[in-house]
């Protein structure tokens, strides 16, 4: 049985109490929401925080109105038809039924980056003498790289980026709101611009026509090896990509190109080409990386065509293996 290491468990009942504990414990503490990312990582000894601060009992994080509390589960998102379709499609394709009942949107946005050299048991990592991200001094994916290139693997983040979402972070020193884009940093180790004493509390996101396409091997369990999100904002389509860098990102060049354009087949093809050129998959996840890059344009096309109103249900059911949201 894979077991967790020892830790102290704290279950504050208010946000301010949680923030106070975080401020006091510093980087020794970790927040636990659904635990579906944190606990496997702890079992594999990728991290071993001394203190776990549970967010489960904090009612503020459960807000489920126009503003989404960070503690809302992915299942709750899927079941809320008034939320943007792209977000619901993303949430509906995370992991499995069970994990969506447990995992939260806050945890999903703060998900650790992933890499096949890192998401392994302690014993396995010992056999490769560890790597930059944890306990080692070389990146096995890009041996000349000084930077860890582990992959951002959250499904909801690209969907929310395309929708122009903003998030709120709270600490003992106060609160700040920022565009979701600014939460992310393209570094596999330092992947969030979040201070260790901050708690992500809210997600603000307006509804807009939107869609999310996910590439993964199987219809369940698997993290994305490519996520394409598109939304129609002020009459223009916007694209965001996930799982092709250490952060999810708005594809600036493609979005510049798309601004003000009708989604004709030619426009869609060109947007696909531009977006694909920005995708930098690495050999640290499932499926052949060249192939992953090659199919990016096809996935962008699915997203933009669905956004335009084409009926893509048949394609969707072949790729997702079911109808997500």
């Amino acid at each position: 049985m894979m077991r967790l290491p020892w830790f102290d468990y704290r279950a504050p009942r208010t946000l301010s109490e949680a923030a106070r504990i975080l401020a006091g414990e510093g980087p020794n503490a970790a927040l636990i929401a659904g635990g579906t990312d944190l606990l496997p990582n702890m079992k594999r000894r990728q991290s071993a925080p001394k203190v776990l601060v549970s967010l489960r009992r904090i009612p503020e994080l459960k807000r489920n109105g126009a503003v989404l509390g960070a503690g809302i589960t992915l299942t709750e998102i899927v079941r809320k038809p008034e939320l943007p379709r792209g977000l619901r499609q993303a949430a509906a394709q995370v992991a499995t039924v069970h994990l969506r009942n447990m995992g939260t949107i806050g945890g999903n946005l703060c998900l650790d980056t992933r890499c096949n050299y890192y998401n392994q048991n302690y014993e396995w990592r010992k056999a490769i003498d560890f790597c930059l991200k944890k306990d080692g001094d070389i990146c096995w994916v890009a041996t000349a790289s000084k930077r860890c290139v582990a992959m951002s693997s959250t499904d909801c983040a690209p969907a929310l980026l395309a929708l122009g979402a903003r998030v709120t972070l709270v600490s003992a020193n106060g609160e700040r709101e920022l565009p979701l884009e600014e939460l992310y940093n393209n570094d596999g180790i330092d992947y969030l611009h979040r201070r260790p004493d901050e708690i992500l509390t809210e997600v603000h996101c307006a509804n807009a026509p939107s869609t999310y396409w996910k590439l993964r091997r199987r219809g369940a369990f698997d993290f994305p090896v490519l996520g394409v999100a598109a939304a129609l904002i002020d009459g223009s389509a916007r694209l965001a990509l996930g799982a092709v860098a250490s952060r999810p990102f708005l594809v600036a060049k493609a979005n510049d190109f798309l601004r003000g354009k009708q989604l004709t087949d030619d426009v869609i093809d060109e947007a696909g080409r531009i977006a694909a050129s920005r995708a930098k998959p690495m050999d640290n996840a499932d499926l052949d990386l060249y192939w992953r890059k090659e199919v990016t344009a096809a996935f962008v096309a699915y997203a933009l065509r669905e956004l335009r109103g084409d009926d893509l249900r048949e394609t969707r059911s072949r790729i997702a293996r079911y109808e997500p949201a």
Binding site: W124, R218, R321
Partner: peptide, 17 residues
């Protein structure tokens, strides 16, 4: 080393496939 000694990364088909 074994590339992926886990149920997640050693891919086996689910009910959906």
């Amino acid at each position: 080393v074994h590339k992926m000694p886990s149920l997640l990364e050693y891919k086996s088909i689910t009910s959906l496939e």
